[in-house]
Amino acid sequence: MDLKNVTMKDIAKYTGVSTATVSRVLNDNYPVNIETKKKVLKAIEELNYEPNLVAKNLRSRKSNLVAIIVADIKNPYYVSIAKEIDDYLFEEGYSLITCSTDESIEKEADIIRLLLSKHIDGIVIAPSDSENSKLTGLIEQHVPIVLVDRKINVLPIPFVGTNNFKEAYNLTEYLIKKGHEKVGVMTGKLNTSTGKERLEGFKMAMGNYGLPIDEKWIFYGDFDEKQAYEVLSLFLKNNKDLPTALLSCNNLMTKGTIIALNEENIKIPEDISIVSFGAMENQEFFKTRITCIEQDTSYMGKKVAELLLAQLKNGQKLKSIIVESTFIEGNSVREWN
């Protein structure tokens, strides 16, 4: 088979399904058995069909559709950004499709493949892996892309996000200046720029103040509420030696952390102090208000839309934007003497 001129008939022959079924999978316009769909998509990737035909057609049609691909659509942080992008681009005649990868590299690749088949005009993405990106093909096909929240340093793609290192450092320093020397961290996925930079900020603050980092107090929550809850719950069932303070590296993990502590009747801030990278939703209604860094999602969404629109209208790639966050002091940290 000549892999340079693969057709739908070749895909059908390769997989043992009909050409009509291959077409349905590509266009996603009729239901297809899930196992059959997986088989066809795998063949498309193996035979390199998409770059040669689907992507070729992509640039010849304008859909007025853009997509945002985020790690977890349940996270209010991403919802707020997506809403702002939608409002801004709708005025320019574009409709927004919102997709969630659930931190899965494989799902992210499937979503991108599907969006290409829909002739998507542009993509905003918080990549599930900052080191092994699947975006090279999109760049080669000249699909406008803007990164949000998470960077990919090796690729020339505009980015909008916060200074993760600096703000994690500042949160840790806040705890230290309150007298805490035994400080732990609930860290995110370390194959993402946000996960790595926030953990590095924590470590740098501890090092600059001459404080040791206890490995047993580094909890790997993967930016997920359930994972944070399970990791901390397991620790608390087997070990009562808690740090006096904890930095949680995103709002979902903060929620999971609080639930785990509550189940063990560990009080905030009496027994342990908490700070969060990312604000808790509706926390003004709760007795315990978590001290946090609140990211300006409205401004971030607007800037993402501006960067994407500049590419869509005239192919102009504007510079990346670092957005300043706001420090909000709650009552979740006690003075430690």
Rank of each mutant, 00 (worst) to 15 (best):
E173C: 09
L175M: 15
I176E: 07
K178V: 10
G179T: 11
H180N: 10
H180C: 07
H180V: 10
K182P: 02
M186F: 08
M186Y: 09
T187Y: 08
G188D: 10
K189C: 08
K189L: 13
K189M: 13
T192C: 05
T192M: 14
K196I: 15
K196P: 05
L199Q: 10
E200D: 14
E200K: 11
K203F: 03
A205F: 14
M206P: 07
G207W: 13
G207M: 13
N208H: 15
Y209R: 14
G210R: 13
L211T: 11
L211W: 12
P212D: 13
I213M: 14
D214F: 07
F219R: 08
F219H: 09
F219W: 13
G221A: 09
G221H: 04
D224G: 02
D224R: 03
Q227M: 13
Y229K: 05
S233W: 01
N239L: 04
N239M: 05
K240S: 06
L242T: 04
P243D: 04
P243H: 04
A245P: 07
A245G: 09
L246Y: 11
L246M: 14
L247V: 15
L247G: 04
S248P: 02
N250L: 10
N250P: 11
N251D: 14
N251A: 15
L252F: 06
M253D: 02
M253I: 05
T254Q: 01
T254P: 04
G256C: 07
T257A: 08
T257C: 03
I258W: 01
A260Q: 02
E263A: 01
N265F: 00
N265C: 00
I266T: 00
P269Q: 02
P269A: 01
E270Y: 00
D271A: 00
D271F: 00
S273N: 09
I274T: 04
I274L: 13
V275N: 05
V275K: 10
S276R: 01
F277N: 06
F277D: 02
A279Y: 02
E284I: 08
F286W: 07
K287M: 02
R289N: 02
T291W: 06
I293D: 10
I293F: 10
E294T: 08
S298M: 08
Y299A: 03
M300Q: 15
G301D: 06
G301I: 11
K302F: 05
V304H: 08
V304M: 08
A305C: 06
A305L: 03
